[in-house]
């Protein structure tokens, strides 16, 4: 069912929305209570984006919506109709090169993960931090990344990696 402004869509109805996901325009049928996170993982098999706490506290589900980092677990997919979504699967393409995104290269270089579960969220959040342009110093990077928990405790290396990319001037 297509959404018409002002017209209620009954609770048991699936609605048609359009999203551009990692550069690919898609038409999708979603129930109104589907979060963007569940849409990506359960309906589209884009399982790079992780479900950690599902309450906006851990940051594992961070994606870019129209270039801005948000917690996809707290976003209803139906409300993002028309948006451009970038997940970790599309991050490399976002940087325009053929290889990895500079942040991905830096995370490998600086060993900025152990188990890797939080890494997609860390990478998307860091890409958001670069785009925002407010973080320069290590203190500022740490504060800007405080919405991403790493239970392995790779924080020092994560900050090293992001600092490296910021200092290199790569914007991804």
């Amino acid at each position: 069912m297509l959404i018409e402004s002002g017209s209620p869509i009954a609770a048991d109805t699936k609605v048609e929305i359009g999203l551009t996901i990692n550069g690919e325009a898609r038409r999708l049928q979603v129930a109104p209570w589907t979060t963007l996170l569940d849409l990506l993982r359960e309906q589209l098999d884009l399982t790079g984006t992780k479900k950690g706490c599902d309450h906006g506290q851990c940051g594992a589900c961070t994606v870019l919506v129209n270039g801005t980092r948000v917690n996809s677990c707290l976003a209803l997919a139906v409300m993002k109709d028309g948006a451009e979504i970038t997940t970790v699967e599309g991050l490399a393409k976002l940087s325009g090169g053929n290889g990895l995104h500079p942040l991905q290269e830096a995370f490998v270089e600086h060993d900025a993960f152990q188990c890797g579960y939080c890494t997609p969220g860390q990478l998307c959040s860091a890409a958001g931090v670069l785009a925002e342009g407010h973080a320069r110093t290590r203190d500022e990077i740490r504060e800007a990344m405080s919405g991403n928990i790493c239970r392995c405790g790779a924080y020092t290396n994560i900050v090293d990696a992001i600092e490296d990319v910021i200092q290199s001037g790569a914007q991804g």
Partner: peptide
């Protein structure tokens, strides 16, 4: 999460009306 009706408001008037006419309706 419970099931709910969804209304996309195009104007403030539409939003106010949609909340007034829905049972336990919330703006989001």
């Amino acid at each position: 999460m419970n099931r709910f009706d969804y209304v996309r408001a195009g104007t403030v008037e539409e939003a106010v009306q949609a909340v007034a006419s829905g049972a336990n309706a919330r703006f989001i």
